[in-house]
Computed example of a mutant assay.
Amino acid sequence: MKLVLLNGPPGSGKSTLARRYADDHPPALALDVDRVRSLIGGWRTAPGPAGLLARDIAVAAARTHLTAGHDVVVPQLLARPEFPERLQALARETGASFHEILLLPGREETRRRFAARGSSETETAEPLTDDQFAAMYDRVAAFAEERTRALVLRAGKIDHVYQALLTSLM
């Protein structure tokens, strides 16, 4: 069984790939922490504390699913090591293999995808400005350089990225 972390900036394809993997590998779980956070009352006024609680809930759900012998894919924007390390520890605890994948299809491709998808019920703030988006992309790209064990996928087309993802999980 596998625990897969898909990290990347908004619009990089994290949720799309997680959902596709789960659909193609039932009963794998696409565990979107932002969706979990959106289920917590008052999350828009206190997104930080709600996000931490959502991660706790997600880890508990992942533990349950992995213990039952099923794959879990977690799409999550991360630029700090605490949550990836927590997921890696969970994988060790449950006997799952851990795969950390960073999706960086390029700033302009990612910006185009992000703009095309529209807003989401799980977003907390006003739409990102170009400068905010660039800064977010750069933070994740810098984090990718720190994560020497993570696989960085840079291909643009989602079908190609999905195939690369499947290959990396073999």
Rank of each mutant, 00 (worst) to 15 (best):
K2S: 09
K2C: 02
V4P: 00
L5C: 02
L5N: 00
N7C: 10
G8K: 00
G8M: 01
P9M: 11
P10D: 02
S12K: 03
G13K: 04
S15R: 02
S15M: 10
T16E: 12
R19F: 06
A22N: 08
H25R: 04
P27M: 13
L29G: 01
L29E: 03
A30C: 06
A30D: 06
D32F: 02
D32S: 08
R35P: 03
V36E: 02
V36F: 01
R37C: 06
R37N: 06
L39N: 09
I40Y: 03
I40C: 07
G41T: 13
G42M: 06
R44H: 06
A46M: 07
A46D: 14
P47M: 03
G48M: 07
G48H: 09
P49C: 05
G51H: 03
R55A: 11
R55W: 08
I57N: 08
I57M: 10
V59W: 01
V59I: 13
A61F: 07
A61E: 13
A62W: 00
L66C: 10
A68V: 07
A68M: 13
A68G: 10
G69W: 10
G69R: 03
D71F: 01
V72H: 03
V72E: 02
V72S: 01
V72M: 05
V73H: 00
V73P: 02
L78C: 12
P81G: 15
E82M: 06
E85M: 13
E85N: 15
E85G: 15
E85Q: 15
Q88K: 05
A91G: 04
T94R: 10
A96C: 10
F98G: 03
H99A: 13
E100C: 04
E100D: 12
L104R: 07
T110M: 07
R113D: 05
A116K: 12
A116H: 09
S119P: 14
S120L: 05
S120I: 02
E121K: 14
E121F: 13
A125K: 11
P127W: 14
P127I: 10
P127F: 09
D130Y: 12
D131Y: 04
Q132L: 11
F133S: 09
A134L: 09
A135P: 11
M136C: 14
Y137V: 02
Y137R: 07
D138F: 14
R139N: 12
A142P: 09
A144H: 01
E145S: 13
E146Y: 14
R147C: 13
T148D: 12
R149N: 14
R149Q: 15
R149Y: 08
L151V: 14
V152G: 00
V152L: 04
L153M: 12
R154W: 15
A155C: 09
G156E: 15
I158N: 11
I158E: 11
D159R: 10
D159P: 08
H160M: 14
V161R: 04
Y162E: 07
Y162K: 11
Q163E: 15
A164Y: 09
